[in-house]
Amino acid sequence: MKTTLISTVGTSLIYPNLSGLPADETSYETWLKRQPLSEQPLFNYELISNIRIALQQKNWKQLADGLAQLPGTTRLCGAEINSISDLIQRGYCIEKCTLIFCHSATPDGENIAEILKYYYQSQGHRTEPKKIEGLQDDQPKLFRTKGLRNLAKTISQIVREQTPRYCAINATGGYKAQIAIAVLMGQALGVPVYYKHERFSEIIAFPPMPIGLDFSLW
């Protein structure tokens, strides 16, 4: 059983999920109709209003507490929570695994990592946000020359410290290039990599691929 889960982090939790929450009861009814039919009974105006206010006030703990009132598989909770919930439910990691969030060096990346930290700490997980320096979309050259390399180094360091036997990677959230690096490093280091598209009914594991790592070069 895996005890450490390394997750890439994107921004879909805020954009578009939480940024599109309704501002009043009239718009709430319209918003509710756009949610999956099976999830509509999970919502009420008071809960959605409290989450929206917490977002406006940047009260990340209150926001996380609001999301925790919904099942982790609810689409509103975002790609990271959806995929981690599915992954743990299927027994790919222990129930109270350590969660390490590799997020971009952007305000949105840091904010979402904070939300995830509070969300999972309240459920008994040990959490650790990891800001990846240079991983920012306003400087493409820095993203390429520093950001992606720092992500690869961070994943390698975590796997080395925890050992591949006890690690897994959730490469669902984040930039496409960020996901690609996470998949590549997992394959090269012998660590299982999981991914969940929003239309998938369940999370999937990438099959083993003929990828190796030149450790002398590394």
Rank of each mutant, 00 (worst) to 15 (best):
91 G>T: 06
154 T>V: 11
58 K>T: 11
168 A>M: 04
128 E>C: 11
120 Y>V: 01
202 E>A: 15
54 A>T: 07
20 G>Q: 02
119 Y>K: 08
152 A>H: 05
15 Y>E: 10
83 S>R: 00
5 L>H: 01
169 I>T: 00
169 I>P: 01
28 Y>H: 04
176 K>N: 12
14 I>S: 07
111 N>G: 08
163 T>V: 08
171 A>K: 05
137 D>F: 13
28 Y>C: 07
41 P>N: 05
84 I>H: 01
126 R>Y: 09
114 E>A: 14
21 L>P: 00
207 P>G: 06
124 G>M: 04
65 D>T: 11
214 D>H: 13
148 L>G: 12
171 A>F: 04
108 D>V: 14
160 R>E: 11
80 E>I: 02
45 Y>D: 01
6 I>M: 12
185 M>K: 13
208 P>V: 10
79 A>V: 03
176 K>Y: 11
101 F>E: 05
38 S>H: 14
182 A>P: 06
191 V>C: 08
74 T>Q: 05
8 T>R: 02
211 I>K: 09
120 Y>W: 15
213 L>Y: 04
24 D>H: 07
82 N>I: 11
156 S>V: 00
182 A>V: 09
41 P>I: 08
102 C>I: 07
100 I>A: 01
69 Q>Y: 01
53 I>M: 13
75 R>V: 13
64 A>T: 06
67 L>S: 00
12 S>M: 03
178 Q>N: 11
207 P>E: 14
52 R>N: 03
212 G>Y: 05
167 C>K: 03
46 E>R: 14
99 L>P: 00
68 A>K: 10
15 Y>G: 04
